[in-house]
Amino acid sequence: MRKWKRVDGARGPRFRSALEPHEAELLSNLVSSMLGMLEDRASSAPVDELSEITGMRTGNAVAPQDDTMKRILPDFYRPATDHPAGTGAAESLNSALRSLHEPDIIDAKREAAQRLLQTLPAGGGKVELSEDQAGAWVTAVNDVRLALGTMLDIGPEGPDRLPPEHPLAAHLDVYQWLTVLQEYLVVCLMDSR
């Protein structure tokens, strides 16, 4: 992967880089897997009669059970201190907020992932993105990083290296590659010239 380069032109800023064939295939597979996870979550939402009448979509009121999806779709509210009424108040608030907002959040994440896949050169090669497309890439790559980081149990003090014989060593390398891809693009987007 080459560093991202910002090119200002008549159509506005463009963001350019290039991916090797194996990088494009890996990114496509990871983002497609993320799309599948989001589809599964969206399709598991219960049918709500009121939403059928009003047209207001509702989502799952219950947080995902899977740690990876919990990281992608976290709770909305985390109390700073214990509530005198117990954890029930926070759970009730999270349930209501999740039910109302999760469908739109999933839609936004799916749209970003689909935009990345649409602009990803099949077989690798040059990438040229508009500012909106670059934002979609940042979002989709971030979601994949969060998912992979959760699977690898990477926290704030996560490992920088694993021994080569460790079964997850290659996955950590992928995580770090995604981090660099995202960081270079974010820095390029922030370059206001």
Rank of each mutant, 00 (worst) to 15 (best):
P163L: 03
V141Y: 01
I106C: 04
D173H: 09
A136I: 01
R78I: 13
R145K: 15
R161P: 00
S130N: 12
L120C: 04
L116W: 00
P103G: 05
P79D: 05
V174C: 09
D143I: 03
A90E: 12
D153Q: 14
K126H: 14
D143N: 14
S95Y: 02
P121H: 03
A170R: 15
A90H: 03
T119G: 00
I105D: 13
N94W: 03
G86D: 12
E157W: 07
K126A: 10
G155T: 09
E165D: 14
P74S: 10
N94R: 08
R110D: 07
I105N: 07
T150Q: 04
P167S: 00
E131K: 05
P164T: 07
G125S: 12
L162G: 04
A96K: 11
D173V: 13
I154H: 05
P163D: 05
G88I: 13
L97K: 05
D173L: 15
G88A: 10
A122N: 14
R98F: 09
A112W: 02
G88M: 14
V141Q: 01
D160M: 07
D173E: 07
K109L: 10
R110A: 06
K109C: 08
A136L: 01
A80M: 09
S92I: 12
P167T: 00
L162S: 06
L116M: 09
V141G: 04
H83D: 15
A96M: 15
G86V: 11
D153N: 12
V138E: 08
E128C: 04
E131M: 06
T150P: 01
P84Y: 02
F76M: 02
R115C: 11
L168E: 12
H101M: 13
A134E: 06
G124D: 07
L148A: 09
P163R: 06
P164F: 01
K109T: 00
D160L: 11
I154K: 01
I154N: 10
V127D: 11
K126N: 04
Q118T: 14
H83L: 15
L152G: 02
T87E: 14
H83I: 09
K126E: 15
V138G: 07
I154E: 06
V127L: 00
R78D: 11
M151A: 04
Q114K: 13
P103E: 05
R110V: 09
R161G: 05
L97A: 01
D107P: 09
W137Q: 08
A112G: 00
L100F: 12
P164S: 11
L146A: 07
